[in-house]
Design a protein around this nucleic acid. Structure first.
Lengths: 231, 231
DNA sequence: ACAAAAGTGTTAGATTTACACCCATGA
DNA sequence: TCATGGGTGTAAATCTAACACTTTTGT
């Protein structure tokens, strides 16, 4: 029943690729970095950023390579989400693709984009995507929605220093909900994981907000495993 | 920068496989179905159940094929977890494996096992595993821990009719925690998703418990998306 | 002075936790 | 009658949700 591993060489003509769903946050919108497809048969459609995995390259390394090549950034939050391997998903042959999402501070990128065909698109107004990329994107967005509620990863989308308003708008954009401002504040401040930097916003046409940063070290010490059954 | 897809054929000599972490629940223990490895170099070690994905086979289908071949079961809960593709993870060459976990009612299987080398092992007392299978298993167990708190999937591990004690012990085994019996009951009964079957356990050496089944239809109607930030 | 967002507290309701006793059954 | 687990309730503490006014800044 189990295929003999020796037969591998004969069995397979397939490739493994990685696709990165790179999220950014800007003007109160969650955005994704996409590139105009250069395939003839996909004229006018857009594509996630991906590439074939080299024979002696780790999957993660391939994903980081794509990310670095496209954004110029290193040390970025990234997580594997799922693998898409439908037989006919790709026109040139069987390409099994491993999807990752990553969270970047959009401000650090805007100027370093390597390619004019690269652009940020709001998650609420996506263009048409090639192949199954819409499905991949949706899956990654769902995972982000889930993870952002369970772990403090959202901060990767914000500048080092941020206001509570920015943080709230981030959650609202990701989860597509409206949150009560006072309750949101209370919640976050009571977790006692935000460090008050004693600084304020500048150049805003209204009362400037205090700036905070997230205390990752402290978080690491007090995270709890069991959350309780709730579905 | 982006590899031309035309070059795929030349680039790759690799295989894609699936590995199934099949969970069962028995005697208040969470167990995994493993097989004694038949590779010489892995004498005495155990392996997850997996196989190479055929060229024109969907990933899911491959995983179901393995499951069906090993357990005789169909229509089983299964979810993709993660893909493991370390360059040197497999001795015969590059094998990228997509890991799934599934939840089966162990009682339905015990007699239909296809192979004497197949056995259930408690998650708390695992034998030594081949390659990176320990890592894969751990990942799948973590995912199960997470999902079981967010969705009513645990019921797949129980008989159609179950008592609240069985349900509680299931959660305790999966999450490796102790739960208060009264609070657990209250919680589940207040969700109002358990249908009281007006039946009782039989052949137990103590007061028999009522039996319930889970009302999946009702659940589908009232599930809520936003749970609240809590990390 | 006005516009715009910052900052701040309270209350009612819901949820969670901790905890102890009597009951039904089979051996 | 004993051992085993079934079944039940309450009070305190915590968390959540709803809700409005004053403050600070730039224009």
């Amino acid at each position: 029943m189990q295929t003999h591993l020796q037969e591998i060489k004969h069995h397979f003509k397939l490739a493994v690729s990685v696709d990165c769903v790179i999220f950014g946050f800007n003007h109160d919108e969650l955005k994704v970095l996409l590139i105009e497809s250069d395939l003839k048969e996909c004229k006018g459609k857009y594509s996630l950023l991906g590439d074939i995995v080299c024979p002696d390259e780790e999957l993660e390394d391939a994903a980081y390579r794509v990310l670095k090549a496209r954004t110029g950034l290193d040390h970025v939050f990234m997580e594997q989400v799922q693998t898409f391997g439908a037989v006919k998903r790709h026109p040139v042959g069987r390409v099994v693709t491993v999807a990752y999402y990553s969270l970047v501070n959009i401000a650090r990128i805007e100027r370093t984009l390597s390619d004019l065909r690269l652009n940020w698109y709001p998650i609420k107004a996506l263009p048409e995507l090639v192949f199954d990329h819409a499905q991949i994107l949706e899956m990654c967005h769902n995972r982000l929605k889930q993870q952002v509620q369970l772990q403090p990863i959202g901060f990767n989308l914000l500048p080092r220093k941020f206001s509570l308003r920015e943080l709230q708008h981030l959650y609202e954009a990701i989860l597509d909900v409206e949150l009560d401002r006072r309750n949101f504040r209370k919640k976050f401040l009571s977790m006692d994981l935000l460090m008050d930097l004693n600084e304020e916003e500048a150049d805003v046409p209204h009362r400037p907000a205090r700036l905070y940063k997230f205390d990752f070290d402290k978080y690491e010490q007090c995270k709890k495993p069991y959350l309780g059954i709730g579905f």
